[in-house]
Design a protein around this nucleic acid. Structure first.
Length: 411
RNA sequence: GCUAAGGUAGGGUAGUUGGACAUCCUUUAGGACUGUGGAUCCUUAGACCCGGGUUCGAUCCCCGGCCUUGGCCCCA
């Protein structure tokens, strides 16, 4: 084989694309049912858009290059920044809140492994201009409904950065980052050694408590009455009111600097090392891109990981009719095929002038549900012989009534 | 970036301790069989990841690379 596809990329052939589109459509329907509208942004952006948010270090993990005009460009490694840039560029004056979703591919120059590719798809949403417990709860509810609609098995974890940040207030920023990294990993040994290295071992028990506390009262017993208390209680209350199953976890740090409040994650149980399929939270980015500061809350879902987790499944299919004809009756067959397609029925015709037996055999192999045989007899009578390829039974009927039969068979 | 295992037709495999046309199943195309089936039979197409090295000779041994799959790091 002379040419291979680039490392970490995949070709999707029709059977797999049918699965992917099937899941994608379910997610689109859910997003739409929550009143979210789709946005599309460029596949490449100026590098600065992402370095502003995440630092220069990420350039090594991006598909970054200079274009012919000497501009520093990168294939987008994530979508949130681009969506907020688009908001700043063109929608700051739109009435709030804005409910947006996206489904698009991203590119990262990383070592591929299970559930991690260099080109991958994210389904996500951003709720812009609503800073409230109800907003936080809506975004979580949306992400939950999206994952639920796909059929994937997952666990939702919800937390808030405030309790942790209150405990860490005595540390400087680099030290906070180290501690948060250990917390996010649930690595208590690492947490303990990090803290003792910083000579703040007294923080170990409270921080550990954040990750193990199962209820909000336990959290506030550790932190005392912090200003965010009522907001957190309200958000969790709204989740409970919607019967959304989640685990509380105030150890979520997401390894990120830019989240400012509520954070949440979702994990599939069968994906190995790359099992996170959802990540999101409350953040503020607009002012970094030259816009007016605005509260936002969003998340991304790892679409490819959802599909890996789902494994093999057969999407619902519509009936497919294979029209079987001879060179002499092809004209009549075209008429029938056109009528079927007009009626919304997927219709394929033989192209190789094969015998009836070969055409039927080919129809079976291709997975067609019906064959419409149009030979001399049928062409003269203006009928077709409709054969159910599942049962083998057949009847000679008019094309019009065949439409009804085929529609009625929908599985 | 680190690490382990691996790479034989489109898919799945056998095999050679270094020897001649590389096995089988599936698949592709055609036929046996001309208005009705996934069967059967015959024929056909299709592979030793790439590049060096050792050797009379390498799919096999050695080195390097590429790619795949796990794990680590990272994960915006």
């Amino acid at each position: 084989m002379m040419i291979q596809k680039p490392r970490g990329t995949r070709d999707f052939l029709p059977p797999e694309m049918a699965q992917r589109r099937f899941i994608e459509q379910k997610m689109r329907d859910v997003a739409s049912s929550f009143g979210y509208g789709e946005v599309v942004t460029p596949m490449f952006e100026e590098q600065e858009l992402f370095t502003i948010k995440s630092g220069e270090g990420i350039i090594s993990e991006m598909y970054a290059f200079e274009d012919k005009g000497g501009r520093k460009i990168t294939l987008r490694p994530e979508i949130t920044s681009a969506v907020i840039r688009a908001y700043v560029n063109g929608a700051q004056m739109a009435p709030k809140p804005l409910r947006w979703f996206y489904f698009a591919e991203c590119f990262r120059y990383e070592r591929p492994q299970k559930g991690r590719y260099r080109q991958f798809w994210q389904f996500g949403s951003e709720l812009i201009g609503a800073d409230s417990a109800a907003a936080d709860a809506e975004v979580i509810a949306l992400s939950y409904a999206l994952l639920k609609s796909t059929g994937v098995r997952f666990i939702l974890k919800v937390g808030h950065l405030a309790p942790m940040k209150h405990l860490l207030a005595v540390l400087d920023a680099p030290a906070q980052k180290k501690v948060m990294a250990a917390l996010d990993k649930r690595d208590m040994e690492m947490l303990e050694t990090t803290l003792s290295g910083l000579e703040h071992s007294e923080l170990f028990e409270p921080l550990k408590g954040l990750t193990t506390a199962a209820t909000l009262p336990e959290i506030f017993a550790i932190t005392g009455d912090i200003p965010e208390k009522s907001r957190i209680e309200e958000t969790f209350g709204y989740l409970d009111a919607q019967n959304i199953p989640y685990e509380q976890n105030f150890g979520i740090a997401r390894g990120l600097d830019y989240y400012t409040g509520m954070v949440f994650e979702g994990f599939a149980d069968n994906l190995g090392a790359e099992n996170q399929i959802l990540g999101g939270g409350v953040y503020r980015l607009a002012h970094l891109f030259g816009g007016k500061d605005v509260p936002s809350c969003g998340f991304g879902i790892g679409f490819d990981r959802v599909l890996v987790s789902l494994g093999e499944f057969t999407p619902e299919t519509k009936p497919v009719v294979a029209v079987v004809c001879t060179p002499e009756t092809r004209a009549a067959a075209y008429k029938t095929a056109a009528a079927f397609r007009e009626a919304g029925i997927t219709t394929v015709m033989d192209l190789l002038d094969r015998g009836f037996g070969a055409q039927l055999s080919s129809a079976l192999k291709s997975g067609a549900t019906f064959a419409a045989v149009i030979g001399e007899k049928e062409a003269q009578a203006g009928t077709i012989t409709l054969k159910d390829l599942g049962t083998g039974s057949q009847t000679e009927i008019s094309p019009e009534s065949a439409v009804g039969v085929i529609h009625g068979s929908r599985r």
